[in-house]
Structures are given as structure tokens and as C-alpha cells.
Design a protein around this nucleic acid. Structure first.
Ligand SMILES: [Zn+2]
Ligand SMILES: [Zn+2]
Ligand SMILES: [Zn+2]
Ligand SMILES: [Zn+2]
Lengths: 166, 166
DNA sequence: TAGCGAGGCGTTATAACATAACATTTTTGT
DNA sequence: ACAAAAATGTTATGTTATAACGCCTCGCTA
């Protein structure tokens, strides 16, 4: 039932980033972990794109306007931290990272990734969890981590494509 | 309801490979596509490991006993073909490839990947498809491709772990 | 306050995974 | 036998991610 705000508007989006950072600060404070300047900056860059973003894109943005270019480990370490804290998800099917829309509650979510515009929705639904759990149980398998990524067309892109075809 | 044979035995396994290759030959013949020597060899190597296998592992095995080492494109092209024909699946969460257990019927399957022994089951269940489809529909999203990879512990490894702990 | 230790980050190098581009060979249809 | 298409060889490079080491900072303790 959840998902990134859509359609995207600049106004929504700025607030969206702000809220995400605010949540993250509180969450880290409560857990006694350090959301350092660098980590917060990376989190901000992840949210700044309203689409999943690659590690090297973050790296490039991080380097913007700095005297010395940042190096890969800088970004990957920050991303590792953010993933551990559940603030960011990695999408393995496209090697990209996206801000978690519900960082407070632990969850195994699914992602709808538009192949046209790359807009991605993080969705959670009990029925998905249940059916996966049931199938795993049938095989005596204990799930610890999930990567559920569905590629396809979002509403907008499907509509546009239809228009283009006419 | 489907899955690789388990527990694994050498005897099962040899037959398993043989069957897979046989199916593949028939399938390619029926479709009028060419299962060349190289492609068949790669498919065999994929099946030879009873676990998902990396492209560069295949490359290494392909090179074994040959005068000149094979190059990456050789393997990737064969894997591309095999994926197009539905004979092999790519597991993006672990960058590995695995033979399809039901190459005849088109399907969107899920994978249970044991983090301990890497044994992987390909499962299909209507309830998973249904719940995913329903959620996607709620968002006006049209699914074209799925990547559903669940990491955890298989029966054997969970049991062994329990024993080790005692 | 000096010394210690853990965590975070900078830096260099390299590993692991994948593809672009073009040359050559093999296959297929005529 | 010939030409076109498909498959493979070959070289180079692109993309994603991590290992290893050293420095610095900060909070703790003697
Ligand atoms: Zn999330
Ligand atoms: Zn779209
Ligand atoms: Zn399959
Ligand atoms: Zn196992």
C-alpha cells in the first residue's frame, strides 16, 4: 500500500527529502549510531534523485565542487551503513540504490521498477509475504533476506506509450 | 512445487544433467534455433554445478585443458542465448547463473538461495504470482519481468547449524 | 592530561562482473 | 559455388565493488 509519492513534483520532492533526512536523524540518534556529515550527504543524494541511483553517480555528485574527487570506498561505506540501518535499499537487478520509504519498521518489501522512466515504487503487502513464506516453508527453507524486484511499465509510461502508438 | 532434486547425490545429478541437455536439444530443434557445441557445453557446465555458477567460473572450466584460454564474451554470449531460450536464469542478487528446471513452459519463478551451501531451488507458485500481480495492479503497474530471490537457510543447513550449536 | 582504542574516513590498488567493436569463421539458403 | 547471415574469436574497455593500509578524531580511562 505504500510507495514513493507519485506523480513527482518539485515541491513534494523537496519536502520528501527533508522528511527522509529528519526521520533518519531521529532514528540514528535513538539507536546510538552516528549519522555523520558524509553519511547524511550520501543519504540526501540518494533521495535527491526520485529514481534509484548508482553508486558511481553518487560518487560524481559528491565530487561536484570539491577540490579532490571522492573515491569509491567513501560512497560504498556510507551506503553499507545506510543499508544496515534500513535507510536505503539496494536493487540488485539494476545495481542501484534507493531511499527506504518506511525506515522505521523492519520489512521485506518489493520494488516495482519502471523500465522506461526508472521510477520505482517500494511496496509492501502481507499477501506477498505470506505466499512467499508458505512456499519457502514447503521446502523447509528459512528466509532471512529478500530481493523482490519487478520490472515493467508504470502508469504514466504505459499511457504515454499508448499515445505514441496511436 | 518444483525444485532441484534434493538431497543431491552424484547419481541423481548425472542423470539430471543428461535430462537437461536432452530437453534443451529438443526444445531448440523445435524452435529452429541453434544449440551449438559451445552453447551446449556452457549449458552443461551450468548444470554440472548443482549450485548457481558465476560467468567467470564457467569461463575457467571452459578453458580447462584447452590450448588457448576462452574470453568473457564467449561465455556471456552463450549465456545470453540460453537465457533468451529460457534454459538458464540469471540470479542478479549473487551474479550467478542456474539451469532452469522447467524450460518448456514460460514462467516467472522465484528462487530460494541458501546462504550457507548455495543450493538454490527454483519455485513456482500461483499464489506468489497472484499476490504480486494484485499489488502491481493497485499501482497501475504492468509487470514484464521478475527477479524474486530469497536468501536464507535450506533444510540441511538449518539442521546442521542446529547440531553445531548443541 | 597523557595514553589508549574504536570508529570513521582518505588513499591506492585491485578484484569481479560485463560489454563494445571489429575480425574471422561457420552455416545456411539460393 | 556464392552471398548473406549467424556464430565465434579477439582486443580492449567499461562498470561495479572491495581489500588493505594509514591517518585522524573523539571519547574513555589511568
Ligand atoms: Zn524499505
Ligand atoms: Zn515509467
Ligand atoms: Zn525456470
Ligand atoms: Zn544449505
Amino acid at each position: 500500500m505504500t510507495g514513493q509519492p507519485s506523480p513527482y513534483t518539485p515541491h513534494n520532492h523537496k519536502r520528501c527529502i527533508h522528511d527522509a533526512l529528519h526521520k533518519a536523524r531521529i532514528l540514528c540518534r535513538d539507536r546510538g549510531v552516528r549519522l555523520t556529515v558524509l553519511r547524511e550527504k550520501v543519504l540526501e543524494l540518494v533521495w535527491q534523485s526520485h529514481c534509484p541511483v548508482g553508486a558511481y553517480e553518487i560518487l560524481a555528485e559528491l565530487t561536484q565542487g570539491e577540490s579532490k574527487p571522492a573515491q569509491p570506498p567513501t560512497v560504498y561505506r556510507a551506503l553499507d551503513f545506510l543499508q544496515e540501518q534500513g535507510l536505503v535499499h539496494r536493487l540488485s537487478s539494476i545495481n542501484a540504490y534507493i531511499g527506504c520509504s518506511r525506515p522505521n519498521t523492519p520489512h521485506h518489501s518489493s520494488f516495482l521498477i519502471c523500465t522506461q522512466c526508472r521510477t520505482t515504487f517500494e511496496i509492501e503487502h502481507p499477501s506477498i509475504d505470506q505466499s512467499l513464506k508458505a512456499c519457502a516453508d514447503d521446502h523447509g527453507f528459512t528466509i532471512t533476506d529478500t530481493s523482490i524486484e519487478l520490472a515493467g511499465l508504470c502508469t504514466n509510461c504505459r499511457t504515454n506509450r499508448r499515445i505514441n502508438k496511436l
